[in-house]
Amino acid sequence: MVNIANYNDLVVGDRVIEAGNSENFQTGDWRSLIPVIDIDKCIDCFTCWIYCPDDCIIIKDDMIVGIKATHCKGCGICAKACPKKAITMTPEE
């Protein structure tokens, strides 16, 4: 069976008529490697947070606490940008 959406469910004309809904488009399954943060090396400089194109660095109480796996595409920019080499791109199980 060909997998296509029902035209009746779509807004006319290839439009998105609500704001901020890219949250609903989960791109985590594009990933082959996931960034793993070594919290002991991390100095909370937020360089990775600035560089991440998908807003996937999770911050709590001004501290970096992890990666948003639902949307991280595994691009590796955070690992390259980290001045302390605290992020390692790691294969997932």
Binding site: N3, I4, A5, L10, G13, D14, R15, V16, I17, E18
Partner: peptide
């Protein structure tokens, strides 16, 4: 609103 977005094969 956003117009003229990219369509995958699904859309």
């Amino acid at each position: 609103v956003s117009h003229n977005l990219m369509d995958g094969p699904l859309f």
